[in-house]
């Protein structure tokens, strides 16, 4: 049983993630639950589950860093840090040669440049529209009557494609409706949607530039079709963590650990 443990709590728009690590940085628990109406309560619930998973008592957690849009609502946190910093730290911990982090979250997406020590050098973040975010994919999956897993199928991006707006979710959905009305095959529409989201991300990538290895974080990294399109655009392989959704919480836990030892 570990005595000095540290937690990161990422209260995102779609999910709340908790990671607990020990003083050596070893991951002891990882929990993901849907963010409810009350971010603070959800955070507590996820935290309790993670303590259970790790077999720890709360007093063994020496520091908790909250992150994500709901970071201010985490009453038990000992510190808070933006998800931008946390994704940089988390990605660097998992892939030490990371120079660029692309985080595609539920309500926004970010591109973060980090140095060889995982310190943030520059970042950009979209927010004007859900285009280029996980929410965009959810809306489209619903419209196409597909599950997110089916939408992510890499086979969809092998064949023909159609062009879909990359600037607005609402207009993109209208385009999808028109395409369905024209009986365009669903795979082609999915292919077009994946490319649309990547085009949106790409404009942010080019504004920051690509440095070192590129690590993809956030729940959307589970979308294998999108990963393939993005790799095609980058011309190189992406680092995709086993649990991309919890990279922010992992980074937050490491920030808690660092802060404790300062």
């Amino acid at each position: 049983m570990a005595d000095n443990c540290f937690a990161g709590v990422d209260v995102g728009s779609l999910s709340t993630d908790v990671v607990i690590i020990n003083a050596s940085g070893k991951c002891l628990a990882e929990v993901v639950i849907a963010t409810g109406l009350n971010g603070g309560e959800t955070a507590q619930k996820a935290f309790d589950q993670s303590l259970n998973q790790a077999g720890l008592a709360q007093e063994q957690i020496k520091a908790v860093t909250a992150t994500g849009y709901g970071r201010a609502s985490v009453a038990f946190a000992t510190g808070k840090t933006t998800e931008i910093s946390c994704h940089g730290v988390g990605a660097h911990h998992l892939f030490p040669n990371t120079g660029t982090v692309i985080d595609i979250g539920g309500q926004d997406s970010k591109v973060i440049q980090v140095d060889e020590r995982g310190r943030m050098l520059d970042f950009t973040m979209n927010d004007k529209c859900a285009a280029g975010t996980g929410r965009f994919l959810e809306v489209m999956a619903h419209r196409l009557e597909l599950g997110l897993n089916e939408l992510s199928d890499p086979l969809n991006i092998k064949g023909e494609t159609v062009q879909i707006s990359s600037t607005c979710t609402v207009f993109a959905e209208s385009e999808v409706i028109s395409l369905l009305a024209k009986q365009t095959p669903r795979e082609q529409i999915v292919n077009g949607l994946q490319r649309s989201i990547v085009n949106r991300i790409w404009s942010m990538v080019t504004s920051i530039g690509i440095h070192g290895e590129v690590t993809l974080t956030g729940g959307v990294a589970n979308n294998q079709g999108l990963v393939l399109v993005l790799e095609e655009k980058l011309g190189k392989k992406l680092n995709v963590p086993e649990n991309p959704q919890t990279v922010g919480a992992l980074g937050a836990a490491h920030i808690a650990l660092r802060g404790y030892h300062k």
Partner: peptide
Amino acid sequence: SGQDRTRIEAFIEM
């Protein structure tokens, strides 16, 4: 906006 708060905070962290 919440996003601008995050941008500013992240900038200061940087």
